[in-house]
């Protein structure tokens, strides 16, 4: 970066000249009085400039401060909104997840219902005659057999649900990709 130039070149010249005069011993009182008058005039000008520049600088600083406060306020709002959005997003994700779970449970229940009907038909048409043929007409054995088939329905339901959930998650992942 280039060296910053002085914004007070004339004032610097006045100062250096006054310094030179102050170091001279052979200067007449009349010339010294004139130089002092010139220096006073330049000092007055510089003092007035300094007052105006200070006022302007203070206003600029105040303006920057106000802008900074507005920026901070806007930033806090953005952060609060981002947090709210994140919370809503989590709620939405949970709701969607619950909705998918419900839909899958319904689907799984339907599949299991058809499986139950199928198992019932198979049991009535094929298993009952076979059991009767080997163990005779035994009421409790029939109940045990049908009860076992009924107990199989819950694991089937869980298995179907698990498979459908896995499928749904895999589809969701692909959609995100």
């Amino acid at each position: 970066m280039a060296e910053k130039e002085d914004v007070f070149p004339q004032e610097q010249q006045v100062f250096l000249y006054a310094k030179k005069i102050s170091q001279q011993n052979d200067i007449s009182p009349e010339q010294l009085a004139q130089e002092y008058k010139n220096l006073t005039a330049n000092y007055e000008k510089l003092l007035n400039d300094a007052k105006v520049i200070t006022n302007i600088s203070d206003r600029l600083q105040n303006r920057l401060n106000v802008a900074n406060e507005k920026l901070n306020f806007a930033n806090e709002n953005i952060q609060a909104n981002a947090k709210l959005i994140e919370e809503k997003n989590t709620q939405l994700r949970d709701t969607i997840s619950e909705l998918i779970q419900t839909k899958i449970s319904q689907k799984a229940s339907t599949i299991v219902l058809f499986a139950a009907i199928g198992l019932f038909i198979i049991s009535e048409l094929f298993l009952d005659p076979i059991v009767e043929r080997y163990v005779g007409k035994n009421f409790w054995l029939g109940v045990l057999l049908k009860g076992s088939i009924a107990l199989m329905l819950r694991p089937i339901d869980l298995l179907v649900e698990w498979y459908l959930m896995r499928d749904a998650r895999s589809r969701a992942k692909n959609e995100i990709k």
Binding site: V7, F8, Q10, D49, V52, I53, I56, S57, L60, R63
Partner: peptide
């Protein structure tokens, strides 16, 4: 629209 302190000295000049 806006000026910095150094510019205010230049405007004075």
């Amino acid at each position: 629209e806006y000026f910095n302190t150094s510019s205010s000295k230049c405007i004075l000049d």
